[in-house]
Design a binder for these strands. Structure first.
Lengths: 206, 206
DNA sequence: CCTACCGATCGGTAGG
DNA sequence: CCTACCGATCGGTAGG
């Protein structure tokens, strides 16, 4: 049995994976360093050789597993020569990359409530500028010279983007709430309707 | 000094108030029964005379302080003889009753993440039917006989309501995120724009 | 027989 | 990368 398969890098990634799973399922104070160590197959002492402490481990998980890493490429890959086509394609790529499980926001909730959002400035300081730059194709598609119909209504781009991201927040969060209710299970006509409402909301009428 | 001012009812309400504040600010596992007892001015033993245990205390807080108690009256009081007027009035009453502080959702996040949403069925089983009944004025205002203009587009009422509630979720949650960022502080043009986008989204064009 | 409440301590676990 | 520990605090309960 070679000793190679337990390199420091592999161990670190195993720790981060298990820590991510536990933090999203049980929160910050509900997750113990001992349990992370046990599930990752390392001793408690060795866990502290890889991370200075519990909060350092949490922030590493928060940054490395943040949905932004999936959101940004999805937005940048969006294509379409009208605002409507662009928004529809971006929405489709977002749901494809985020998947159907609406628990990817849990880390942010844990950060907001249990850590009092103290890492938000650093997190959004690096994320917001890059997300804003992904708005440029939308402004270009909205140019008056564009052949495609359906101009954007005069809405400040940051607010429009916030509403677009908020569209997914609201969809996933109501989904989290409703998925716990034993109500009738509709397949998922919800998001498409949300996108339609958003599109009618931001586009000039024909 | 009369002994009357420490009735059992008063003590219970003091416990619930402090527990609500702590659970909202520090989460479930980050809040100890000892601290709740200390801040409420009761002994730990007496705290257990009022509540069977920590989870029983949390669920009581979850139900008695749920924003639904402010949301439902606000929706029921909404007035207007067109869908647009009704939605605008409902939105104004909602922000007025929920206030500017966007932390009223924290208890739901704690329940979803740390308690795994195990109380959601009971919570929404009592809430959803009442919320749905608050949709009736909107359907009435949308009647073809109504003199006011601006018919609703054909959207299933539950989805329309979900999008309306989601509008506030997305506004408050992006507000929670952005309020931590030292960016430029706009007064709050956000929510009005969100309402405009929603209205254009759900109404037939003129 | 009830309530409200005490000081002390239970078996385990927290981060380090 | 491990065992062996620390000061303190956890949720909950004892007798009175």
């Amino acid at each position: 049995m070679p000793a190679r398969h337990t390199s420091a890098q592999h161990t670190r990634e195993r720790i981060l994976s298990k820590a991510h799973r536990l933090f999203t399922r049980r929160g910050y104070h509900g997750t113990s360093m001992r349990r992370i160590a046990r599930e990752a197959g390392v001793s408690l002492g060795n866990l502290y050789n890889h991370f200075r402490g519990k909060e350092a481990l949490f922030t590493t998980v928060l940054f490395e597993f943040h949905p932004y890493h999936r959101i940004l490429p999805a937005l940048q890959a969006a294509q379409g020569d009208s605002p409507e086509a662009l928004v529809r394609d971006a929405a489709a790529r977002l749901v494809a990359s985020l998947g159907g499980h609406p628990d990817f926001l849990n880390l942010m909730f844990v950060e907001l409530v249990e850590l009092n959002g103290r890492h938000m400035p650093k997190l959004f300081g690096t994320i917001l500028p890059k997300l804003m730059s992904s708005l440029e194709p939308l402004a270009r598609a909205d140019s008056p010279q564009a052949t495609a119909s359906g101009r954007l209504r005069p809405i400040p781009p940051p607010l429009l983007f916030r509403a677009f991201i908020g569209l997914f927040f609201s969809y996933y969060i109501t989904e989290m709430f409703l998925s716990r209710v034993p109500a009738e299970q509709q397949p998922q006509p919800g998001l498409e309707t949300f996108v339609e409402i958003f599109l009618h909301g931001v586009l000039e009428p024909d």
